[in-house]
Write a protein that binds this DNA or RNA. Structure first.
Length: 261
DNA sequence: CTAGATGTTAAGGT
DNA sequence: CACCTTAACATCTA
Protein backbone atom coordinates (compact mmCIF):
# COMPACT_ATOMS: atom_id res chain seq x y z
CA UNK A 1 0.00 0.00 0.00
CA UNK A 2 2.29 2.78 1.10
CA UNK A 3 3.43 4.61 -1.99
CA UNK A 4 3.33 8.40 -2.40
CA UNK A 5 -0.49 8.80 -2.30
CA UNK A 6 -0.84 6.55 0.73
CA UNK A 7 1.92 8.36 2.60
CA UNK A 8 0.40 11.73 1.70
CA UNK A 9 -2.88 10.52 3.21
CA UNK A 10 -0.93 9.48 6.32
CA UNK A 11 0.69 12.92 6.44
CA UNK A 12 -2.68 14.63 6.44
CA UNK A 13 -3.95 12.23 9.07
CA UNK A 14 -0.85 12.91 11.16
CA UNK A 15 -1.40 16.66 10.94
CA UNK A 16 -5.06 16.27 11.83
CA UNK A 17 -4.40 14.16 14.89
CA UNK A 18 -0.93 14.58 16.40
CA UNK A 19 0.11 18.24 16.34
CA UNK A 20 0.70 20.70 19.18
CA UNK A 21 0.29 18.42 22.16
CA UNK A 22 3.36 17.52 24.17
CA UNK A 23 4.65 13.99 23.80
CA UNK A 24 4.32 12.36 27.21
CA UNK A 25 5.55 8.85 26.43
CA UNK A 26 6.96 6.73 23.63
CA UNK A 27 6.41 2.99 23.79
CA UNK A 28 8.71 0.95 21.61
CA UNK A 29 6.78 -2.28 21.50
CA UNK A 30 9.07 -3.85 18.91
CA UNK A 31 12.65 -2.48 18.80
CA UNK A 32 13.21 -4.24 15.45
CA UNK A 33 11.50 -1.28 13.82
CA UNK A 34 14.18 1.08 15.07
CA UNK A 35 16.81 -0.86 13.11
CA UNK A 36 19.61 0.28 15.41
CA UNK A 37 17.57 -0.47 18.52
CA UNK A 38 18.07 3.05 19.85
CA UNK A 39 15.00 3.12 22.05
CA UNK A 40 16.57 5.44 24.61
CA UNK A 41 17.59 7.94 21.97
CA UNK A 42 14.15 7.94 20.41
CA UNK A 43 12.52 8.58 23.77
CA UNK A 44 15.04 11.26 24.68
CA UNK A 45 14.44 13.06 21.39
CA UNK A 46 10.66 12.90 21.49
CA UNK A 47 9.43 13.07 25.07
CA UNK A 48 8.62 16.61 26.13
CA UNK A 49 8.56 17.89 22.54
CA UNK A 50 5.58 18.57 20.32
CA UNK A 51 4.95 17.67 16.72
CA UNK A 52 4.78 20.87 14.69
CA UNK A 53 3.89 19.54 11.28
CA UNK A 54 4.14 16.60 8.92
CA UNK A 55 6.41 16.63 5.93
CA UNK A 56 6.53 14.01 3.20
CA UNK A 57 9.19 13.18 0.66
CA UNK A 58 8.52 10.24 -1.61
CA UNK A 59 7.44 7.39 0.64
CA UNK A 60 8.90 8.94 3.81
CA UNK A 61 6.89 10.85 6.39
CA UNK A 62 8.65 13.13 8.88
CA UNK A 63 6.97 14.32 12.05
CA UNK A 64 8.76 17.61 12.66
CA UNK A 65 9.43 18.37 16.30
CA UNK A 66 9.59 21.83 17.85
CA UNK A 67 13.39 21.70 18.17
CA UNK A 68 14.18 21.17 14.49
CA UNK A 69 14.58 17.41 14.68
CA UNK A 70 12.01 15.00 13.28
CA UNK A 71 10.66 11.52 13.73
CA UNK A 72 11.06 9.54 10.54
CA UNK A 73 8.42 7.04 9.45
CA UNK A 74 8.81 4.61 6.59
CA UNK A 75 5.91 2.26 6.05
CA UNK A 76 7.41 -0.67 4.17
CA UNK A 77 4.64 -2.73 2.64
CA UNK A 78 2.18 -2.84 5.52
CA UNK A 79 2.69 0.24 7.69
CA UNK A 80 0.10 2.84 8.69
CA UNK A 81 -0.74 5.31 11.46
CA UNK A 82 -3.68 5.12 13.78
CA UNK A 83 -4.72 7.63 16.41
CA UNK A 84 -6.95 6.65 19.32
CA UNK A 85 -7.65 7.29 22.98
CA UNK A 86 -8.94 4.05 24.41
CA UNK A 87 -6.34 1.28 24.64
CA UNK A 88 -8.88 -1.15 23.22
CA UNK A 89 -8.58 0.66 19.89
CA UNK A 90 -4.88 -0.05 19.52
CA UNK A 91 -4.20 -1.63 16.12
CA UNK A 92 -3.14 -5.27 15.99
CA UNK A 93 0.52 -4.76 15.08
CA UNK A 94 1.36 -1.48 16.80
CA UNK A 95 5.16 -1.30 16.96
CA UNK A 96 5.74 2.21 18.30
CA UNK A 97 3.16 4.29 20.18
CA UNK A 98 3.41 7.99 21.00
CA UNK A 99 1.23 9.10 23.89
CA UNK A 100 0.35 12.78 23.88
CA UNK A 101 -0.53 14.99 26.83
CA UNK A 102 -4.06 15.37 25.48
CA UNK A 103 -4.42 11.65 26.12
CA UNK A 104 -4.36 10.67 22.49
CA UNK A 105 -2.12 7.90 21.27
CA UNK A 106 -0.55 7.78 17.85
CA UNK A 107 0.37 4.24 16.87
CA UNK A 108 2.71 3.20 14.10
CA UNK A 109 1.48 -0.22 12.99
CA UNK A 110 3.48 -2.47 10.69
CA UNK A 111 2.51 -6.08 10.36
CA UNK A 112 5.42 -7.26 8.22
CA UNK A 113 8.07 -5.09 9.84
CA UNK A 114 9.59 -3.92 6.56
CA UNK A 115 9.12 -0.34 7.68
CA UNK A 116 11.19 1.62 10.18
CA UNK A 117 11.02 4.55 12.57
CA UNK A 118 13.78 6.79 13.88
CA UNK A 119 15.13 10.22 14.67
CA UNK A 120 16.38 12.58 11.99
CA UNK A 121 18.51 15.56 12.99
CA UNK A 122 18.02 17.35 9.70
CA UNK A 123 15.55 16.24 7.06
CA UNK A 124 17.32 17.65 4.01
CA UNK A 125 20.63 16.14 5.09
CA UNK A 126 18.86 12.81 5.58
CA UNK A 127 17.35 12.93 2.10
CA UNK A 128 20.66 13.57 0.40
CA UNK A 129 22.43 11.01 2.54
CA UNK A 130 19.84 8.44 1.49
CA UNK A 131 20.30 9.58 -2.11
CA UNK A 132 16.61 10.04 -2.66
CA UNK A 133 15.55 11.59 -5.92
CA UNK A 134 13.10 14.49 -6.19
CA UNK A 135 9.57 13.89 -4.99
CA UNK A 136 7.31 12.72 -7.80
CA UNK A 137 4.97 15.68 -7.32
CA UNK A 138 7.81 18.22 -7.38
CA UNK A 139 10.18 17.02 -10.08
CA UNK A 140 10.19 19.22 -13.18
CA UNK A 141 9.80 17.86 -16.67
CA UNK A 142 13.40 18.19 -17.80
CA UNK A 143 14.74 16.34 -14.82
CA UNK A 144 12.05 13.70 -15.18
CA UNK A 145 12.88 13.25 -18.83
CA UNK A 146 16.62 12.83 -18.32
CA UNK A 147 16.75 11.06 -14.98
CA UNK A 148 13.76 8.79 -15.29
CA UNK A 149 13.29 8.19 -18.99
CA UNK A 150 16.83 8.48 -20.29
CA UNK A 151 17.80 4.91 -19.38
CA UNK A 152 18.00 1.55 -21.04
CA UNK A 153 16.15 -0.62 -18.61
CA UNK A 154 12.35 -0.98 -18.60
CA UNK A 155 10.55 2.29 -17.96
CA UNK A 156 8.75 0.68 -15.05
CA UNK A 157 12.06 0.06 -13.26
CA UNK A 158 13.01 3.69 -13.66
CA UNK A 159 9.70 4.98 -12.36
CA UNK A 160 10.19 2.84 -9.25
CA UNK A 161 13.83 3.80 -8.70
CA UNK A 162 13.72 5.97 -5.57
CA UNK A 163 17.11 7.51 -6.32
CA UNK A 164 15.74 9.03 -9.53
CA UNK A 165 12.15 9.70 -8.55
CA UNK A 166 10.83 9.37 -5.01
CA UNK A 167 7.35 8.10 -4.28
CA UNK A 168 6.26 5.82 -7.11
CA UNK A 169 6.17 2.08 -6.41
CA UNK A 170 4.79 -1.05 -7.99
CA UNK A 171 1.08 -0.25 -8.02
CA UNK A 172 1.30 3.37 -9.19
CA UNK A 173 3.98 2.73 -11.80
CA UNK A 174 1.57 0.22 -13.35
CA UNK A 175 -1.28 2.73 -13.14
CA UNK A 176 0.75 5.55 -14.71
CA UNK A 177 1.88 3.37 -17.61
CA UNK A 178 -1.61 1.99 -18.13
CA UNK A 179 -3.07 5.47 -18.41
CA UNK A 180 -0.23 6.71 -20.58
CA UNK A 181 -0.77 3.59 -22.74
CA UNK A 182 2.87 2.65 -22.59
CA UNK A 183 4.08 -0.92 -22.12
CA UNK A 184 6.00 -1.30 -18.84
CA UNK A 185 8.96 -2.98 -20.54
CA UNK A 186 9.45 -0.16 -23.04
CA UNK A 187 13.04 1.00 -23.05
CA UNK A 188 13.77 3.11 -26.10
CA UNK A 189 17.20 4.74 -26.18
CA UNK A 190 15.46 8.04 -26.79
CA UNK A 191 11.90 8.77 -25.71
CA UNK A 192 9.74 10.74 -28.16
CA UNK A 193 9.03 14.08 -26.48
CA UNK A 194 5.24 13.80 -26.70
CA UNK A 195 5.36 10.42 -24.99
CA UNK A 196 7.68 11.69 -22.27
CA UNK A 197 5.37 14.65 -21.68
CA UNK A 198 2.37 12.35 -21.58
CA UNK A 199 3.93 10.08 -18.95
CA UNK A 200 4.93 13.12 -16.89
CA UNK A 201 1.45 14.61 -17.07
CA UNK A 202 -0.28 11.33 -16.35
CA UNK A 203 1.98 10.74 -13.36
CA UNK A 204 0.69 13.95 -11.77
CA UNK A 205 -2.92 13.15 -12.56
CA UNK A 206 -2.64 9.64 -11.17
CA UNK A 207 -0.94 10.67 -7.95
CA UNK A 208 -3.25 13.62 -7.31
CA UNK A 209 -6.40 11.68 -8.08
CA UNK A 210 -5.21 8.81 -5.89
CA UNK A 211 -4.72 11.23 -3.00
CA UNK A 212 -8.21 12.60 -3.54
CA UNK A 213 -9.45 9.01 -3.47
CA UNK A 214 -7.75 8.61 -0.07
CA UNK A 215 -5.48 6.06 -1.75
CA UNK A 216 -8.41 3.65 -1.57
CA UNK A 217 -8.80 1.57 -4.76
CA UNK A 218 -12.54 1.33 -4.13
CA UNK A 219 -12.82 5.13 -4.48
CA UNK A 220 -10.62 5.43 -7.54
CA UNK A 221 -12.09 6.02 -11.01
CA UNK A 222 -13.57 2.83 -12.40
CA UNK A 223 -11.50 3.14 -15.55
CA UNK A 224 -8.32 2.77 -13.55
CA UNK A 225 -6.19 -0.34 -13.54
CA UNK A 226 -5.50 -0.38 -9.80
CA UNK A 227 -8.92 -1.66 -8.69
CA UNK A 228 -8.57 -4.50 -11.22
CA UNK A 229 -5.12 -5.79 -10.45
CA UNK A 230 -6.36 -8.99 -8.86
CA UNK A 231 -8.21 -10.22 -11.93
CA UNK A 232 -10.77 -9.16 -14.48
CA UNK A 233 -10.75 -7.61 -17.95
CA UNK A 234 -9.08 -4.36 -18.96
CA UNK A 235 -11.40 -1.53 -17.89
CA UNK A 236 -10.70 0.24 -21.17
CA UNK A 237 -10.85 -2.37 -23.94
CA UNK A 238 -12.24 -5.34 -22.01
CA UNK A 239 -9.33 -7.45 -23.23
CA UNK A 240 -7.43 -9.75 -20.93
CA UNK A 241 -5.02 -8.07 -18.52
CA UNK A 242 -1.61 -9.67 -18.25
CA UNK A 243 0.38 -10.33 -15.12
CA UNK A 244 4.14 -10.57 -15.44
CA UNK A 245 7.22 -10.15 -13.28
CA UNK A 246 9.09 -7.03 -14.36
CA UNK A 247 11.92 -5.55 -12.33
CA UNK A 248 11.30 -8.27 -9.80
CA UNK A 249 7.73 -7.16 -9.10
CA UNK A 250 4.35 -8.41 -10.17
CA UNK A 251 3.19 -6.04 -12.88
CA UNK A 252 -0.26 -5.74 -14.40
CA UNK A 253 -0.85 -4.26 -17.82
CA UNK A 254 -3.02 -4.52 -20.89
CA UNK A 255 -1.06 -5.85 -23.89
CA UNK A 256 -3.71 -4.47 -26.26
CA UNK A 257 -3.86 -0.93 -24.89
CA UNK A 258 -0.25 -0.37 -23.89
CA UNK A 259 2.17 0.19 -26.73
CA UNK A 260 5.71 -1.14 -26.57
CA UNK A 261 8.18 1.57 -27.54
C1' DC B 1 0.93 -26.54 2.25
C1' DT B 2 2.71 -23.25 -1.01
C1' DA B 3 2.94 -19.04 -3.18
C1' DG B 4 2.71 -14.41 -3.07
C1' DA B 5 1.99 -9.55 -1.18
C1' DT B 6 2.07 -2.35 -2.08
C1' DG B 7 9.39 -1.81 -0.15
C1' DT B 8 14.39 -1.71 0.34
C1' DT B 9 18.99 -3.37 -0.04
C1' DA B 10 23.01 -6.46 -0.03
C1' DA B 11 25.05 -9.54 -3.02
C1' DG B 12 25.96 -11.53 -7.38
C1' DG B 13 26.24 -11.19 -12.42
C1' DT B 14 27.14 -8.98 -17.03
C1' DC C 1 33.00 0.89 -13.18
C1' DA C 2 28.12 1.24 -14.47
C1' DC C 3 24.25 -1.09 -14.64
C1' DC C 4 20.90 -4.63 -13.79
C1' DT C 5 18.65 -8.64 -11.41
C1' DT C 6 17.80 -11.63 -7.63
C1' DA C 7 17.30 -13.13 -2.94
C1' DA C 8 16.26 -12.02 1.57
C1' DC C 9 13.95 -9.71 5.15
C1' DA C 10 8.87 -10.97 8.74
C1' DT C 11 4.35 -12.14 8.71
C1' DC C 12 -0.11 -13.16 7.19
C1' DT C 13 -3.60 -14.71 3.79
C1' DA C 14 -5.58 -16.86 -0.47
Amino acid sequence: MPELPDVEVFRRYFEATALHSRIAEVDVIDPDLLRNGATKELKAAAIGRTFQRGRRHGKFLFGELNDGKAIRFHFGMTGFLHCYEDASEAPAHARVVFTLRNNRKLAYDCQRKFGHVGIVENIDAFLSEKKLGPDALEIDFNEFDSAVLGRKRPVKSNLMDQSRLAGVGNVYSDEILFQARVHPESAPSEWPKPVARKIYKVMHEVLETAIKSEADPARMPKKWLTPHRVSGPCPRCKGELRKKKIAGRTSWFCPACQQRL
